[in-house]
C-alpha cells in the first residue's frame, strides 16, 4: 500500500458524484452512483468488463453526458458548464485512455507538445522542448522522442499517453486501465509510475483496473463495481477481508489462480 506519509485532505472533495444514472437505449449502464474523491487520494475502481467503469470516468470529464444525477469536479457542475468553461476545467483534469489514443500522424515529441502548443500560446519553443523532455524523463522513455506511435510497444504507448496528460500539469488524473494487457513486470513499472506521479505532480486520481495488484499498490481506497453500481468501497483490506459474493470471487480469481 502507498506510504502513509502522503496526506489526504478528507474535508476537500475534488470529485463529488451523486445519484448518477446513464443508459444507452434500453441498456442501463450506471444505476445511481455516489462517489467522492478526496484531494491527494488515489482511488481504484475495480470491476468486471462491461460494468460501466469507462462510461463513469467519461462522464466525469464530460465526454459523455449523464441521464440524471450530478457530477461536481473541483467545485464545478460538469454538465452545466459552457464549452469554453468545460475546456478550462479539462486543463485541470488528465485523462489517460484505455486505448492510449496517441495521435498516429505525430511523433512522440509532437504528441506531447501538441496539448501545450494549443493551450499555452505564449510558451516559447524552447520552453515546450524543455517541458516535453522533463515529462519524458518522468515516465522513463526519453529515447522514444522521435518515434511514431506505430513503432511503440503497448506498454510504451500507455506511458506516453499518461505523459501526454501530465504535460498540462493536471490536479486530477483519471487512468482507464493503465495495466491491462501488459506483462507483470511492465504492470509493476506502470504501478510505480502512478505512485510517483502523485508524489511529483501532487495529483488526486481515479485508477480503473481489473488488476488487484495494481489496486493494492497504488490505491488508498478501492471501490468494487458490479452491474452499474458499487458493491463495496473502503481500504483494500476492509473490502477484501469481508470477502463476500462477487468481491470474494474477484479476489479468488486474481490471487488463487
Amino acid at each position: 500500500m502507498t506510504d502513509s506519509k502522503h496526506h489526504i485532505f478528507k474535508e476537500n472533495e475534488v470529485i463529488r458524484i451523486r445519484d448518477l444514472y446513464k443508459s444507452f437505449g434500453d441498456k442501463h449502464v450506471l444505476t445511481g452512483i455516489d462517489l467522492d474523491l478526496y484531494q491527494g487520494e488515489n482511488l481504484a475502481v475495480l470491476g468486471r468488463s462491461g460494468t460501466g467503469k469507462s462510461v463513469l470516468i467519461k462522464i466525469i470529464i464530460g465526454l459523455l453526458q449523464q441521464d440524471s444525477g450530478t457530477v461536481t469536479v473541483l467545485g464545478e457542475d460538469v454538465n452545466s458548464l459552457s464549452y469554453p468553461d468545460l475546456r478550462a476545467l479539462r486543463l485541470k483534469v488528465g485523462f489517460s485512455f484505455q486505448s492510449s489514443a496517441l495521435y498516429d500522424s505525430m511523433t512522440v515529441r509532437e504528441n506531447l507538445a501538441f496539448p501545450l502548443k494549443r493551450n499555452n500560446k505564449s510558451m516559447s519553443r524552447g520552453q515546450i522542448e524543455k517541458t516535453v523532455s522533463i515529462v519524458l524523463d518522468a515516465i522513463g522513455l526519453p529515447e522514444t522522442i522521435d518515434q511514431y506511435p506505430a513503432e511503440l510497444s503497448g506498454g510504451q504507448k500507455k506511458r506516453i499517453g499518461i505523459g501526454r496528460t501530465l504535460i498540462l500539469r493536471p490536479e486530477i488524473m483519471l487512468y482507464d486501465e493503465p495495466t491491462s494487457g501488459l506483462d507483470p513486470i511492465t504492470s509493476t513499472e506502470l504501478n510505480n509510475l502512478i505512485v510517483s506521479v502523485r508524489e511529483r505532480f501532487n495529483t488526486s486520481s481515479i485508477v480503473i483496473t481489473h488488476d488487484l495488484t495494481c489496486a493494492k499498490t497504488v490505491a488508498d481506497r478501492v471501490a468494487v463495481m458490479d452491474d452499474g453500481n458499487f458493491i463495496a468501497i473502503g481500504t483494500f483490506d476492509e473490502v477484501f477481508s469481508a470477502q463476500k459474493g462477487l468481491v470474494k470471487s474477484f479476489y479468488d480469481y486474481n490471487f488463487i489462480q
Binding site: 464530460g62 465526454l63 464549452y83 479539462r90 483534469v93 496539448p115 493551450n119 501526454r164
Partner: peptide, 22 residues
C-alpha cells in the same frame, strides 16, 4: 473516421483542444 474510432478526437477534447475547430 480513424481518429474518431481510435478515440484520438476524444483525446483532443480531454486535452482542452477543440477538435471541431482544429
Amino acid at each position: 473516421a480513424s481518429m474518431k474510432v481510435t478515440e484520438q478526437i476524444d483525446a483532443m477534447e480531454v486535452s482542452a483542444i477543440n477538435p471541431f475547430r482544429y
